[in-house]
Simulated assay, not measured.
Amino acid sequence: MSAPSGVFEWIEFPEGRARFCGGVRGADQAGHEVFAVEIAGESYYGEISSVWPDDCHFNLRIDSFGHSRIENVGMPVREGSPFIKKFPSADVELIKSLILRLIETFWRRAERPFVMEMDDVDEFRGKVEFAEGWVLLSNEASSE
């Protein structure tokens, strides 16, 4: 793994690369915290959010992934959308792995993306959830 020089730089892992992109005004004109994963030489974008089970602790949730352009984040992940990539299950496992490795990279660092910011009271509990329907599955073989 390459050492990240900044929060928004690509991080190289043996199986691929990923990065945080920061806050973006999405297709729905709302703000979204965005990350990217590169699959077969193409970058795809997704939304990550914090989930607060109580007032002091939070976990992270992957809300969506597969947007072909960063400004499309915020559009629903639906079958037939020309802006959402469908992935074979083997690629989905790779994508999950890269997302989890990206989060692990910044979990204990002083410099973190906004979605992972902590202070003396708030604490990331380490759990990462994948929302129902966060990615579209295809029936094709892996891109590897």
Score class of each variant (00 low, 15 high):
Cys21Lys: 01
Gly22Gln: 07
Gly22Lys: 03
Gly23Met: 11
Arg25His: 10
Arg25Gly: 06
Asp28Gly: 10
Asp28Phe: 09
Gln29Ala: 12
Gln29Ser: 14
Ala30Arg: 13
Gly31Val: 12
His32Lys: 03
Val34Cys: 09
Phe35Leu: 11
Phe35Val: 01
Ala36Thr: 01
Ala36Cys: 07
Val37Pro: 07
Glu38Ala: 05
Ile39Tyr: 05
Ile39Glu: 11
Gly41Cys: 02
Glu42Val: 04
Tyr44Asn: 04
Tyr44Pro: 08
Tyr45Asn: 01
Tyr45Cys: 00
Tyr45Gln: 01
Glu47Arg: 01
Ile48Val: 15
Ser49Glu: 15
Ser50His: 10
Val51Phe: 13
Val51Ile: 14
Trp52His: 11
Trp52Gln: 07
Trp52Tyr: 11
Pro53Asp: 08
Pro53Tyr: 12
Pro53Ala: 08
His57Tyr: 07
His57Gln: 12
Phe58Ser: 05
Phe58Pro: 08
Leu60Ser: 06
Leu60Gly: 05
Leu60Asn: 04
Arg61Gln: 12
Arg61His: 01
Ile62Asn: 02
Ile62Tyr: 02
Asp63Thr: 10
Asp63Tyr: 00
Ser64Met: 01
Phe65Trp: 06
His67Met: 03
Ser68Asn: 09
Arg69His: 09
Arg69Glu: 13
Ile70Pro: 01
Ile70Leu: 10
Asn72Phe: 14
Gly74Val: 10
Pro76Lys: 09
Val77Asp: 05
Val77Tyr: 05
Arg78Leu: 15
Glu79Pro: 03
Gly80Asp: 06
Ser81Pro: 08
Ser81Trp: 01
Ser81Val: 03
Phe83Asp: 12
Lys85Met: 15
Lys85Val: 03
Lys85Arg: 15
Lys85Phe: 06
Lys86Phe: 02
Lys86His: 10
Lys86Asp: 09
Phe87Arg: 01
Ser89Asn: 09
Ser89Leu: 11
Asp91Ala: 05
Val92Ser: 03
Val92Ala: 05
Val92Asn: 02
Glu93Leu: 15
Leu94Arg: 15
Leu94Asp: 11
Ile95Thr: 05
Ile95Tyr: 03
Lys96Tyr: 03
Ser97Phe: 00
Ile99Ala: 14
Ile99Tyr: 05
Leu100Pro: 01
Arg101Ile: 00
Leu102Pro: 13
Ile103Lys: 10
Ile103Ser: 04
Thr105Ala: 14
Thr105Ile: 04
Thr105Gly: 06
Phe106Ile: 01
Phe106Ala: 08
Phe106Asp: 03
Trp107Tyr: 13
Trp107Gly: 02
Trp107Arg: 15
Arg108Asp: 14
Glu111Met: 11
Glu111Thr: 15
Pro113Lys: 02
Phe114Ser: 15
Phe114Tyr: 15
Phe114Gln: 14
Val115Ile: 12
Val115Arg: 02
Val115Asn: 04
Met116Val: 04
Met116Arg: 12
Met118Leu: 05
